[in-house]
């Protein structure tokens, strides 16, 4: 495949692609069909598209009612309004009764860019991970996104799917032996000195960080952890035992998301140094996506720096 595509665009294409195969699939949006990329589905399947207006909480509730009636609703809005505004609706109306609603948060993280802090959700992964029975997925490229959508259509239960706004390289289609399975991380490059466990757009950057580190004689393993919950504990523990130190990387707060999940697991089962890379307990700001990512250190060099620290902590 190669090339670049935003995971939100790949998501929008996947909805259309799978529409015929899954007639129960219903798409709900909250006045953001252009941005969330549900517009193509809306055009192709107007009878299965429901614009709920700028009312995200009601959208989640409607989806719960649809799921209770045997349909497969996907709700769509920005991550901040999905996981943020509708947190309690997701918890009580969707997750508590374990209903088959897929909550899709597009424009996750700070690469939203220009819109600034009000629209840059860095808390969604932690918020959604906290809810019992939720599955939390954050694909790293367009190819993986398509497979994630298919997997979620075949998974009966509540899930949160995070999409990114900006176009990024497609690479998982060219990985040998690559297979997508919910709850199973993918080792996309081997290494022995440190393991970077990354999710979303940080996976591509982790691959670049690995090249930077290789020049310095540091061998880094890279794991694509597309499913943050349920966490692939076996893969994390294996990496901890084999490389002795872990760096987590996510376009989200370092508090409670992927970094939190990995640190919690390792502290109790295989205490090795864990260095979390992400947004440090702060709000985002306006700027181009690239400038904002650079400002907060969400770059290949940012990951490499955390890896140097992680390696130095090994004793």
């Amino acid at each position: 495949m190669a090339g670049k595509i935003a995971t939100r665009a790949a998501y929008g294409k996947a909805l259309v692609e799978f529409a015929e195969q899954y007639p129960e699939l219903m798409v709900l949006d909250a006045d953001l069909a252009m941005a969330t990329q549900t517009k193509d589905f809306r055009a192709a399947y107007p009878q299965r598209f429901f614009d709920c207006g700028i009312a995200e909480n009601n959208m989640v509730g409607i989806a719960a009612g649809m799921a209770a009636s045997g349909l497969k609703p996907f709700t769509n809005t920005f991550a901040i309004f999905a996981a943020g505004r509708s947190y309690e609706q997701i918890r009580n109306s969707v997750a508590y009764p374990h209903l088959n609603v897929k909550v899709v948060g597009s424009h996750g993280g700070i690469s939203v860019g220009e819109d600034g802090a009000t629209h840059q959700c860095t808390e969604d992964l932690a918020l959604m991970r906290q809810i019992p029975g939720m599955t939390v997925v954050c694909p790293c490229d367009g190819h993986e996104m398509r497979l994630a959508v298919e997997a979620l259509l075949n998974y009966e239960g509540p899930a949160y799917l995070r999409l990114a706004r900006s176009a990024t390289d497609i690479f998982t289609d060219e990985l040998e032996g690559y297979k997508f399975e919910l709850g199973k991380g993918v080792t996309i490059a081997d290494g022995k000195d440190v393991t970077v466990i990354a999710t979303g757009i940080m996976v591509g950057m982790a691959r670049q960080a690995r090249e930077i580190l290789a020049k310095e004689g540091i061998s880094a393993r890279v794991i694509d952890m597309h499913t943050i919950k349920p966490l692939d504990e076996e893969l994390v523990l294996k990496a901890a035992r084999e490389t002795g130190t872990i760096v987590t990387s996510e376009e989200a707060s370092v508090l409670g998301g992927l970094g939190g999940a990995v640190a919690e697991l390792l502290a109790e089962n295989c205490p090795v140094p864990v260095v979390r890379h992400g947004v440090n307990d702060t709000f985002g700001r306006s700027g181009t996506a690239a400038a904002v990512l650079e400002y907060y250190g969400l770059t290949p060099e940012g990951i490499a720096e955390k890896c140097r620290k992680a390696v130095s902590m090994k004793k």
Partner: peptide, 25 residues
């Protein structure tokens, strides 16, 4: 019990989703 409720304000939305489902199907 057709819908878990208790957090006020949420149940009517689910009822709307159910009624809509009947229309759709």
């Amino acid at each position: 019990v057709d819908m878990s409720t208790g957090s006020l304000g949420q149940g009517l939305s689910a009822a709307v989703g159910m009624a809509l489902s009947a229309k759709i199907t």
